[in-house]
Design a protein around this nucleic acid. Sequence first.
DNA 1: ACGATTTTGTTCTCCCGTTCACAAACTCCT
DNA 2: AGGAGTTTGTGAACGGGAGAACAAAATCGT
Lengths: 237, 237
Amino acid sequence: MTVDRRRPPGAAHEPRADRGIPEATVARLPIYLRVLTALGEREVCTVSSEALAGAAGVNSAKLRKDLSYLGTYGTRGVGYDVDYLRYQIARQIGLTQDWPVAIVGIGNLGHALANYAGFGSRGFRVTALFDADRSRIGEPLGGLRIRHLDDLDEALADSPVSIAVIATPAGNAQSVCDRLVAAGVTSILNFAPVVLAVPDGVDVRKVDLSIELQILAYHAQRRAGPDRALASELTPL
Amino acid sequence: MTVDRRRPPGAAHEPRADRGIPEATVARLPIYLRVLTALGEREVCTVSSEALAGAAGVNSAKLRKDLSYLGTYGTRGVGYDVDYLRYQIARQIGLTQDWPVAIVGIGNLGHALANYAGFGSRGFRVTALFDADRSRIGEPLGGLRIRHLDDLDEALADSPVSIAVIATPAGNAQSVCDRLVAAGVTSILNFAPVVLAVPDGVDVRKVDLSIELQILAYHAQRRAGPDRALASELTPL
DNA sequence: ACGATTTTGTTCTCCCGTTCACAAACTCCT
DNA sequence: AGGAGTTTGTGAACGGGAGAACAAAATCGT
């Protein structure tokens, strides 16, 4: 797929002097990017902030403010050029380059992640798999071979990665994390249910099924609780 | 494991009149709960806000304020009783009851989730598996049998669940979501890379690998970018 | 050419969450 | 019993993000 980098007629220029994009905005840019990609595949050329915000599930004022941090890429009275905006967001996020990714811990989850197609689809490419289980070494998976954790330094010295995924059991996660950091990894996506300690300059994001379920349970309980309380309060009447 | 529900000597009473706990606090309670559980297994009886906050990776003042929303369960000059606090948090979240969970979409990820041990470990129990692929119906997985998506209404009518996990491809997620909502599900954990539209009263949380990676990439690029720019700016000197 | 209409970019206000700082309260030691 | 030392709970200040509202700028129709 080719990307249209030409600036549409009306739209103004300049990314923006201050490169600091608020964290909350950064977290939403990938959503906009996804929606724009879907629109592009449906041959839509132009989209209004209202429509884009609707598809992304956010307020349109918030969307416009988010986009204004990147630069003024819209045209008043018209909207945003889908392909152009998509390219600008991708550039800001850093998806115009390819990011090699290492996965550590090839259990149930690591296996699923290594096979996950949408993974490499946009900008990310799994280039190394590691596990502590020696009986698994050499096993082919998604076009790669599983290597032992002890080869991590060597392997990452040959072909460095800055992003790694930890999918090990909780007990091993911190030591794996330490090894990764020592090998030069600066961004970590952690699936293990532990709080990782890392030095400054290393970025960790966590994905935690159990925590998400507990948050859902809290709200579910609150929805159910008051009703029950209400029912028992109303019965006496 | 038995839980000590006795109030420790010094600690005061009352959950709190206003039951509204800030969203940011709710998101951290599961972390505290996990740390407390680990401490309990190491036979630690008492913990200070400083120590607990350190293990949870947050500021100690924030932790104290978080806990103060539940009630005054600490003892000044001493700290918090591990078992007692753990029970109080679990109660607030709603983990004193068991939550049946349905999983829809038994692909790579759904498979991994169904087998995930830590899932059922605390409060959650997978009770139903659904997939659209008829060739998979009846396949046993984690002590359950996969059922067809069309049996969803019937199955959930027999044994209702309020929490469901969507692990289908993006294209099917919205229609699956609609069916779940129609069947009475009010809390949804969505692994599909789409923005789900749901009616009021239904709670959706999303887990999105691709978005997390993109956020990491953004920061990684910013770390790398300025250095390169700096280098090329300094070379002329 | 010009007014009506559409839609962006931005300002302003409000609210939530974080952090500091300190009084209250508990233990321990003499 | 009383003072020194600890640690909690919370009031107050601060910063960031959300949303309403509006001026600026573009298109379209006549």
